[in-house]
Amino acid sequence: MQLELRHLQAVCRIAEAGSLGAAARRLGVSQPALSAQLRRIERATGGELFVRGRGGVEPTPLGQFVLAKARRVLNEMDALGAEARALAADAPLRLGCIMLVLLDGLLARTDLSMSGREITVDLEDSVTALSRMLGAGQYDAIVYGEVNDHEVALPEGVLVRTLVPREPFCIRLSARHPLAHLDRIDLADLAAESWMTLVEDDDGGPEALTTACAKAGFIPSLSHRITDRKMHYDLIAAGRVISLSQPTALRAEGTVLRPLVGSPVTGRIRLAWNRSSVSARQAELLYRAAARAYLANVGNNRFHQEWWDAHPELHPALD
């Protein structure tokens, strides 16, 4: 077997994630499939690339050598794509987004025709993938979230602007849940629940949930990881799981959204763009479009509208 770029990317993802399971999720493949691919790569390179350690997998000396070469090759390919993209002045502006609620209204508000650029929007479920693709020139701009104190590492040549500095996450649970009648829920009262595993596993969300639950005196039982929104909501409506949710999330039949006492988990929403492919005018248009898309969803839930109105210092600057 000859090594291809996808093989080099797989090796780098395993090293970055620190485990096959986490790397598989970021690559969008099953762990058995990634394990089988790694074995084929190791046969091609002539030896074992990773060993299992206390904190996950660690590269062997051969693995470190292959990683260094792989990163150099991938960086060169990233540079090639970005430089070629910069020369194509009439190409559409490509926006990548994490699965944020505001995306539902973002396209309707972009209107980059004023700046002479069309726009395309793609969804990802990994902040790491978004950042890397931004650095590779595969996206010109990205909209993403960070939870609690987590900060996403961004590539060089990128500018970033915060859309929403802070929003309190809430809980989605079945409308038949014994706590559904409460105006707000204490996290400690959810200790016996099964939780939906967060789709975005590299934005600080899993760590924030685990930390908040630990402070509340329990370890959350994580049982499902589903990207299909309808299936996600159906499981909650059936009372099988609960989940963290953005406070701007839409209502779903059979479920309710409730804020948490003390707001133990908070998020922020940010916009980042490549200076070489997005002008200051286009970046401003993107910022305004994303901000208005968020504002259009603030009223989806009365509790968040009240919280938002009480925190004008967090509102995006649209003057």
Results as ranks from 00 to 15, higher is better:
248 T>C: 03
277 S>L: 10
234 D>W: 06
245 S>K: 01
262 G>N: 09
239 G>A: 02
271 L>C: 04
270 R>D: 11
268 R>N: 14
279 S>E: 04
258 R>Q: 08
257 L>D: 01
266 T>V: 15
239 G>V: 04
254 G>S: 10
238 A>T: 05
280 A>P: 00
263 S>C: 11
262 G>L: 11
261 V>I: 06
242 I>H: 05
279 S>A: 06
277 S>K: 01
258 R>H: 05
255 T>L: 04
246 Q>F: 01
247 P>M: 11
261 V>Q: 05
264 P>Y: 13
264 P>D: 11
255 T>I: 05
273 W>P: 09
239 G>S: 03
236 I>K: 10
244 L>N: 05
248 T>E: 11
260 L>M: 15
269 I>R: 07
243 S>Y: 04
274 N>F: 02
280 A>F: 07
275 R>S: 15
271 L>S: 03
275 R>W: 14
272 A>T: 08
238 A>L: 13
254 G>C: 09
256 V>A: 03
249 A>M: 13
238 A>H: 12
252 A>S: 12
254 G>E: 08
256 V>R: 04
270 R>Y: 09
253 E>S: 12
257 L>C: 02
251 R>S: 08
245 S>P: 01
263 S>L: 00
266 T>R: 13
262 G>F: 11
280 A>T: 11
236 I>S: 04
265 V>S: 07
251 R>H: 13
265 V>Q: 04
262 G>E: 07
238 A>F: 09
235 L>K: 14
235 L>C: 09
234 D>M: 14
266 T>D: 13
239 G>H: 01
280 A>I: 03
276 S>P: 00
275 R>N: 14
255 T>D: 01
278 V>T: 09
242 I>N: 02
259 P>W: 01
253 E>K: 03
238 A>V: 11
235 L>W: 08
232 H>Q: 12
233 Y>P: 00
244 L>E: 05
271 L>R: 00
250 L>C: 06
238 A>P: 12
269 I>V: 15
268 R>L: 06
250 L>Q: 12
236 I>T: 12
252 A>N: 04
243 S>R: 00
